[in-house]
Design a protein around this nucleic acid. Structure first.
Length: 469
RNA sequence: GGCCCCAUCGUCUAGAGGCCCAGGACACGGCCCUCUCAAGGCUGAAACACGGGUUCGAAUCCCGUUGGGGCCA
């Protein structure tokens, strides 16, 4: 059901997609999907010196990874600010013709001088409107704003926020060199794209009254605003590089599940009762912008990993197979065919928070042990251990079927026979077959490895044990 | 500096005047389960920033202070 709701996410391709930006994009996307509206992607690339195509590609890629598909935007032309200068020019001309904006030729030196004077008087510098009625035909274009009264931004998250006009000044729409300013471009873009709800970072709240005044001057209806709090680092300062990984890409490479990233980001500053784990569908269904917190939230990687772990446990098996394959290859290992890999992953998924951990924890499935844990080796790979491995090899060579229950029965019987505890043979076998003292349930591991492989690993470990002092 | 935003356990939050000597989750500790590691179950410690009001009654409303953040410079 299509509604009139139109929202947008407008990143600048000056870097990777930041988790804060990703959350803003997510809230826009959720709002659009919840209301059956339209989610638009616009590229704010007017800063040509810092914007690159590579950054843009990386951002689009990250958005796709999060499955925040956009209904309008690139590659369709017309959604990049650099393609929209004619629009800015036309709107500027309209404001000037209607007397809502005027040219100003005050030099930077003059402005600077006034700024210093204001500071000396301990006042805040505001442009004094010197050129308002001079009828100039060139210079910087300024918006004429009311000298008295106030503008109230009725924010969906913060409620009404009032700004005194006395605090504002006739701000510059278009610089004397003809380039439109950020705030002006945003207004023209939002207006021409018929945006109904502007959901963006809290850092833009202070710019909003200026923009509202511009909508008024243009005689356009003002959209609804929702200013989402920022994501903070552990020291409560805005999350930045010095706090660690900030880009979505970094978490993708670390093996965080995309649905976990979405879940975590949504839960950061938003909640629905006591629920922590949400599917994408549940998020769309439950999301309400009014439930978004107005306070800043600290990015907690431990919680993100826990959420990822929860999704790891629930993920569809075939999907997990597809997701983990690149990580197996990146580790220099070879992935078994899906039919063999999937049951292996089922023994690993509750032991790993990320796809990368999934590979680390299950490394022995993909390659033979290249070493044995030192302490365990000294304790278990001894002459006695060698003899036990020999006996185990004999029994395992003939047990039928080679399944977890049958193997467990074999081990339990043998333990009784040798007057040992299960743990004695289990840890020995575990070390021999995985090289480690911790692994998924042993009998599952053996069954998955297969008889021939297990026998081979047992013999290799026995050889090491015999060679030990 | 001016303006604006924010303030419940270490962290994310529930709480929209009495249900709260504050609930859930992550992280942390303990116990149980157990072939190891996990997972799971039980359990412990842990918060309404401070000060004034308003009210029979405030985490919840108002004012101020403090602290943090943002925007403009």
């Amino acid at each position: 059901m299509a509604s009139g709701v139109r929202v947008r996410f407008a990143p600048s391709p000056t870097g990777h997609l930041h988790v804060g930006g990703a959350r803003t994009a997510l809230f826009n996307w959720l709002f659009a999907r919840h209301h059956g509206g339209t989610f638009i992607l616009r590229i704010e690339d007017t800063d040509r010196s810092r914007s690159t195509e590579a950054n843009l590609d990386a951002i689009l890629d990250a958005l796709r990874w999060l499955e925040l598909e956009w209904d309008e935007g690139p590659p369709t032309p017309g959604y990049r600010q650099t393609e929209r200068f004619e629009l800015y020019r036309a709107h500027a001309a309209r404001l000037r013709a209607g007397g809502r904006a005027y040219f100003c030729d005050c030099t930077p030196e003059l402005l600077d001088q006034q700024r210093k004077a204001a500071e000396a008087r301990k006042e805040t510098f505001r442009y004094n409107g010197r050129c308002r009625d001079r009828g100039l035909t060139a210079g910087a274009l300024r918006l004429r704003i009311p000298g008295t009264g106030s503008t109230v931004v009725d924010d969906l998250i913060h409620g009404p926020v009032s700004f005194d006009h006395a605090q504002l000044d006739d701000w510059i729409l278009v610089r004397s060199d003809g380039t439109p300013t950020y705030n002006f471009c945003v207004v023209v873009d939002d207006v021409t794209m018929q945006i109904t709800h502007v959901i963006r970072g809290n850092d833009h709240l202070s710019n909003t009254p200026k923009q509202v005044l511009c909508y008024d001057a243009l005689d356009y209806p003002v959209p609804a605003f929702a200013h989402v709090s920022m994501i903070l680092g552990a020291d409560r300062a805005r999350l930045s590089k010095r706090h660690g990984a900030t880009s979505v890409q970094a978490y993708r490479e670390a093996g965080i599940l995309p649905e976990a990233m979405v879940n975590y980001l949504a839960r950061l500053g938003w909640s629905s009762g006591d629920q922590e784990i949400f599917s994408r569908g549940e998020l769309v269904e439950r999301f309400d912008i009014k439930d978004v917190s107005s306070a800043g939230a600290i990015f907690d990687q431990a919680k993100l990993e826990w959420v990822s772990h929860e999704h790891m446990k629930r993920a569809d098996g075939a999907r997990l197979v597809a997701l983990v394959r690149p990580f197996i290859e990146a580790a220099g290992l070879t992935a078994p065919p899906p039919a063999r890999l999937q049951p292996m992953l089922d023994t690993l998924r509750e032991r790993a928070k990320t796809l990368r951990e999934l590979v680390e924890v299950g490394r022995f499935y993909f390659e033979r042990p290249t070493s044995y844990e030192d302490k365990a080796r000294a304790r278990l790979l001894t002459p006695v251990g060698a003899e036990r491995l020999r006996v185990l090899g004999e029994r395992l060579a003939v047990v039928e079927p080679f399944t977890a229950p049958a193997l467990e029965a074999l081990y339990r019987a043998l333990v009784d026979e040798l007057a040992l505890k299960l743990v004695d043979l289990a840890q020995l076998t575990r070390l021999a077959t995985t090289g480690r003292t911790a692994s998924p349930p042993l009998f599952d591991v053996l069954a998955l490895l297969g008889r021939e492989e297990v026998l081979h690993r047992l013999r290799a470990a026995a050889a090491v044990a015999r060679g030990a002092p």
